[in-house]
Design a protein around this nucleic acid. Structure first.
Lengths: 191, 191
DNA sequence: GTCTTTAGCGGACTACAGTCCGTCTTATGG
DNA sequence: CCATAAGACGGACTGTAGTCCGCTAAAGAC
């Protein structure tokens, strides 16, 4: 692709202002009680600016989650086992599922926003692809007879934010989900 | 609960009109190109009427899907095997997953509407509970050592409409999903 | 048939997501 | 330092989901 023009100073300033304002308002009033109008006002910019930079509500949520997800991505790619390389595929899969559930649980509301976009935003954003590739490789090496690509989607499906939220609301404990998913993954990937 | 007062004549008339109008407009213009205003107008009723009867957009979609889902429910409860009783739990699970994928594939757009409601509508509606109970019982009898309740949610998760839609858009064939899910279910439930 | 209660009706209203385009800022080359 | 083009800014505008409440029609009592 073309040369990556440097970000203009005012653009950068406003991007940071919006993210800050969003984080502040979200933690103060709850994610779904905050309108994008309000965020724009709090950031001292116009509504159009918010939308041009982030596309839509989901895009803003993705941007806010980005940092946290990148931490996890780094640990997976080059961190110590069991998340990083250096142990069996099955252990790496279960370690990933555990870690993702922790992340998800800490930021459910934001994840719901980032996934609930009108049309399946979750499956188009970069991080989903990364999680998917990761699982897909691990599954491939543990069970070459399975359709690794599809099975990876299956293992990611229970990590959907709205399911997590619904289960939490009906009293499920995080540890129960971790144990359950671990059982599924090991049952599935151990010959 | 109290005595179920009979549905008033005008209420029934309008309910049917709205469902008819919705079905007509949805098939003609595509689900997401039809506003509830338009449906109300086509049905010859006010907007308020639509909302009072169906709650919101998702509720209307649920009502439209209801008939089709009840067919499947009937086959599961009292139809011939492998969907109905009379064969092994594992076979019944895979038969259910196949049948649900068929249903989902035929009505993706409508399912997306019914599930995409602001706040996890999918997990609150009656039919989800029924599918969940069904799978939960089958899992319990196939593998008493698993957390059947949670594992049932896990098996239902890949049936989410937005995932199905995303995979279809990126070229997945229905048969590939069926095969993949069958492999997961049998791998998981066979000791 | 008329009266009363009960519940449905429907359109004006609010609030929010997302778009559009004229205006203004920034970076760069002369 | 100034001119100029690339592109960001922002607020008015549009379309839609969902609410509210005064009005109206149905069903039963007498």
């Amino acid at each position: 692709m073309g040369e990556p023009r440097p970000e203009r100073a005012d653009a950068r300033r406003n991007r940071l202002r919006v993210l800050e304002a969003a984080e502040r308002l979200f933690t103060e009033h709850g994610v779904k009680n905050v309108s994008l109008d309000a965020i724009a006002a709090e950031a001292g910019v116009g509504k159009g600016t918010v939308f041009r930079r982030f596309g839509d509500r989901a895009g803003l949520a993705v941007a806010l989650l980005d940092e946290r997800e990148q931490e996890l991505q780094a640990k997976i790619i080059s961190g110590p086992p069991p998340l990083g390389p250096g142990t069996s595929p099955v252990l790496r899969v279960t370690a990933f599922l555990d870690a993702y559930l922790d992340l998800l649980d800490r930021h459910v509301a934001l994840f719901m926003d980032s996934e609930n976009a009108s049309d399946g935003a979750r499956y188009r954003i970069g991080s989903y692809h990364l999680w998917h590739r990761h699982l897909s490789h691990l599954i491939e090496s543990a069970r070459p007879d399975l359709d690794a690509d599809y099975t990876a989607h299956v293992l990611l499906a229970p990590l959907a934010a709205d399911l997590h939220n619904a289960l939490r609301e009906q009293g499920y404990e995080l540890d129960r989900m971790k144990a359950g998913l671990r059982a599924v993954a090991t049952g599935l990937l151990s010959t």
